[in-house]
Design a binder for these strands. Structure first.
Length: 459
DNA sequence: TTTTGAGTTGTTCGA
DNA sequence: GTCGAACAACTCAAA
């Protein structure tokens, strides 16, 4: 009887799963998930709760066969594989810094080698695996647009076919899921839900949502214009190639929106590629020169960071975004840029402080996209925004939340202000009648200060 | 080999 | 109100 282990990590689905297809070539498959303390703790209560829910959904979809173990994967995976007499352990390749190191440890584990059990990597969570798209001279791209063109030329596989009935191995000891905190406003987890959300986006003909208007609506936090697929991509409840295959089939009049969305998936691949080549850039400045910038520190800086985290900066669009993050663990992409710019250029704090807070709060928090999105705003990343590009939090609010609906949704102290006047409570006689905080800083002053510090850095 | 134009996401200022 | 320039420096890719 040939057996294999399918070690799930961040690919919690059965459809379009090449590693599952590879594992299913053996007669029996043991589905395994390992709670790794080095990932479990740092992922924070929100992602722990989501992961637990996603694992429950996966377990239900394979008739309760999922085996959950806790501990160091290098020991646990080897022990399980040996105990069930598996010939191979199948995984989707992990390209992030910790995942690569962990998988190498597992591969070299004495227990695996002694039993001649192979660790087989098939597929990855990306459209094109990191390291594959390169310039003619073999070097990786450091600018998005040429990467995107080369990524399109490189192309990708069709979605993997379904494996048919799989004989899941049962009767193996299961430690079960650890207790997780009850989190309000958590998105529904699991592959079925991911596909339902995605299909709903594809089928939508409501104004302000769906593929057709994606190009314009995706910039509007007050509309349901985005796909909301980030968390499902993060946990691999859907593979991005499935999405690309569906996008290729949308009607001609929706191809503009489909093209924009393809670009967003390419950004995800691009930042994974950048982190693959520069694993240090998860923590360190991609452009080291920017580390010498003069950043604020001390009690005032700590108070400013706290006001930003709690959504009490006195800038309505910033506070709405930060409060949505606190409440839902998710924030619209436009808001992520606005609040990040505010932290770095108005409060003069390091991007690393903001990136840490995001990773603690975000249910979709993915290291490569998060860290490099922050580095982009801070002007220290690949293809970074010019440092002098400083968002004005008032005009950004007026432009992307033109009727003020988004701000009123998350900032109750401003609900009495009508329309776009919600973005400028200081201009209303009763703007502060319900306890909304006054502006923490003067944007004009801090903008000039940021530019002066940048000038100083160059000298 | 060298040159050249272009490059996700912006703002302000002055004409 | 509208419009173009200025705000840097560097990489990439095509010519």
């Amino acid at each position: 009887m040939s057996r294999s282990v399918l070690w799930f990590r961040r690919d919690l689905r059965l459809h379009d799963n090449p590693a599952l297809l590879a594992a299913a070539a053996s007669e029996q498959v043991l589905p395994l998930f390992v709670i790794d303390p080095r990932l479990w703790g740092p992922s924070g209560p929100r992602r722990r709760a989501y992961l637990a829910a996603s694992l429950r959904a996966l377990d239900a979809s394979i008739g309760g066969a999922l085996v959950i173990r806790r501990g160091n994967p290098a020991e646990v995976v080897a022990a399980v594989a040996r105990d069930v007499d598996a010939g191979a352990v199948h995984v989707a390749a992990d390209y992030q810094p910790y995942g690569r190191e962990r998988d190498n440890r597992v591969q070299q584990a004495q227990a695996l080698a002694a039993a001649r059990i192979e660790l087989v990597r098939t597929g990855s969570p990306y459209v094109v695996a990191p390291g594959r798209v390169r310039k003619a001279d073999g070097e990786p791209y450091t600018v998005y647009s040429p990467f995107y063109r080369a990524w399109l030329r490189h192309g990708w596989r069709d979605p993997a076919p379904d494996p048919g009935p799989v004989a899941w191995l049962s009767g193996v000891a299961d430690e079960g899921l650890p207790d997780v905190a009850d989190i309000a406003d958590l998105p529904i987890a699991g592959e079925d839900e991911a596909r339902r959300i995605w299909q709903g986006f594809l089928d939508s003909d409501e104004p302000g949502s769906g593929v057709g208007g994606y190009g314009a609506n995706r910039e509007r936090p007050d509309l349901p214009g985005t796909t909301r697929m980030s968390v499902h991509l993060k946990y691999g409840e859907v593979h991005p190639r499935t999405m690309l295959a569906d996008l290729a089939g949308v009607p001609a009049e929706q191809q503009t929106g489909a093209e924009t969305l393809r670009g967003e998936l390419a950004w995800r691949d691009f930042y994974a590629d950048v982190l693959f080549h520069r694993p240090d850039s998860a923590r360190a400045y991609y452009k080291p020169a920017m580390a010498s910038m003069h950043y604020d520190s001390g009690p005032d800086a700590a108070a400013a960071l706290s006001a930003w985290q709690q959504g009490r900066t006195g800038f309505p669009i910033v506070d709405a975004g930060m409060r949505q993050l606190l409440r839902e663990g998710w924030m619209h992409n436009r808001l992520r840029m606005i609040v990040a710019s505010f932290l770095v250029k108005d409060l003069h704090l390091e991007w690393t402080a903001g990136a840490r807070w995001f990773m603690r709060q975000l249910v979709d928090g993915e290291l490569s996209s998060n860290q490099h999105g922050w580095q982009w705003v801070a002007g220290s990343g690949t293809d970074a925004a010019p440092y002098f590009r400083i968002f004005n939090p008032v005009t950004q609010g007026q432009r992307f939340d033109p009727d003020g609906d988004y701000v009123r949704r998350y900032v109750p102290e401003l609900r009495h202000l009508p329309g776009r006047s919600v973005h400028t409570p200081w201009e209303a006689a009763d703007g502060y009648a319900h306890g909304y905080p006054e502006q923490l800083v003067d944007h004009g002053v801090e903008r000039r200060e940021a530019l002066a510090r940048y000038q100083q850095l160059r000298e």
